[in-house]
Design a protein around this nucleic acid. Structure first.
Lengths: 233, 233
DNA sequence: TAGTAATTGTTAATTTAATAACAGTGCAAA
DNA sequence: TTTGCACTGTTATTAAATTAACAATTACTA
């Protein structure tokens, strides 16, 4: 089995972390650092140093004892693994606030991943550019995607439209969809789908805040109880 | 152990799914459905029916054989578990595209979770409202958060500011932070932190698209090889 | 009424992910 | 030169999450 096949079997979580390591490493590089220890990376990412070393072991990268990992080398290796050599083009469907936020996030950023087009139905937006990215009419979606060989679509339309947009993206030959609407979409086999729902994330935070609040109250009550009991003596 | 304590020990993933189930269920309710089967929920969420039944088992909800789950009851039970009775207030720090996108996502939505304030440093934004949410000066953050008893902060500022904002939120007494900038922040024990990085998610999609592309090529090469071999006979 | 199909609820098994344990190594200080 | 410390790299263990297996129940059909 060659290196490329090994990478195919990397755990999903490792893939995510590699992307995050790279971002942290690029910042370190900007700060003229040339080596980094596993515990430094770990601190930034809120994980353990062992986790970091294990991930790097999986991709076959070795550091130097007592010196750590060479930042530049590691960045390049991560790029070899997660980036596509030829580059991959991305389209954003829905140039509302979220779509524009994503474009701004990406603009001026490195890597082999570029946002090539935006789509919208609003005539005020069609024909204009956002941060250099042209906005096309949704009606021309298939044509633009095929002509420009765009492989990934990000859905940032109102959730009433998400199903229809996903269908259209698939028909246009898209290979991967990232759906940011709270309504799940369906795709056929062979199209990679990732859904992310901001409301769920916020509700999760709220749940654990609630738990912490109740725990704090419980502890207080318990202390109170103990105190009372103790005062009986 | 009472019911509340049981809920504390629910798997993290189950918490996330409960939030998603609820959203799907609310849509079904709007469509005048009153019961739903585990396989129907599963289909919507791209998971297995067993997973759904297991989650519902964990929260102690029973359906009716051959009739499924009562949608209204289930929605109420999920609300009991994940919502805070008194409600929880949320602040958004950074009223750029992403901050405004989040406000629009939430506005008009149900539940005990409300966005109470936005913050920004831009004088053009301060004093205005977005979808009914007032935007305050970042300088008044601590005061507003304490006065209004806001417990959760969402960070949507440029990533150069994320560290400073997180610090300020913690100092203001916030209990949970949701960081949408690509730069991880630090919080002390007792503050729940959730980080979400859109770039990582997109890079992950790109990775699996790349893998699929390579697989397809491999299969084609293999077929080609087989064909040639066969033609030797 | 007996048989069959569809569905839930639960325990068991498996898979995936994270953590712990520890051997190995090189540098620095005694 | 030796001892101890601070790292890496790897295997072993544990924990979390998912999936499989299957008993139990009900409705429907012949």
């Amino acid at each position: 089995m060659n290196a490329r096949d090994t990478f195919k079997q990397l755990p999903h979580k490792t893939i995510e972390r590699l992307s995050q390591y790279r971002r942290a490493l690029l910042i370190c590089l900007d700060n003229n650092k040339d080596h980094i220890f596993s515990h430094e990376i770990a601190k930034i990412q809120h994980i353990t140093p062992v986790q970091v070393r294990r991930d790097l072991m999986l991709i076959g990268y070795s550091g130097t004892l007592r010196k750590g990992y060479n930042i530049k080398e590691l960045i390049d290796l991560i790029a070899d693994i997660i980036d596509s050599e030829e580059g991959i083009k991305v389209a954003i469907v829905g140039m509302g606030n979220l779509g524009r936020a994503l474009i701004n996030y990406f603009s001026g950023k490195r890597h082999k991943l570029s946002i090539a087009a935006g789509f919208d139905v609003n005539p005020d937006k069609i024909g204009k550019t956002v941060n250099g990215i042209p906005c096309y009419d949704c009606k021309t979606m298939s044509q633009v995607i095929q002509e420009q060989n765009i492989e990934i679509g990000i859905i940032t339309v109102p959730d009433t439209q998400s199903t229809a947009i996903a269908k259209k993206l698939v028909e246009s030959g898209i290979k991967g969809i990232l759906n940011y609407t709270p309504k799940p979409v369906e795709v056929p086999d062979g199209v990679y789908l990732e859904e992310y729902d901001m409301i769920t994330t916020l509700e999760k935070v709220a749940f654990y805040v609630k738990m912490e609040n109740e725990r704090t109250v419980d502890v207080a009550v318990k202390r109170q109880g103990q105190g009372t009991a103790a005062s009986n003596f």
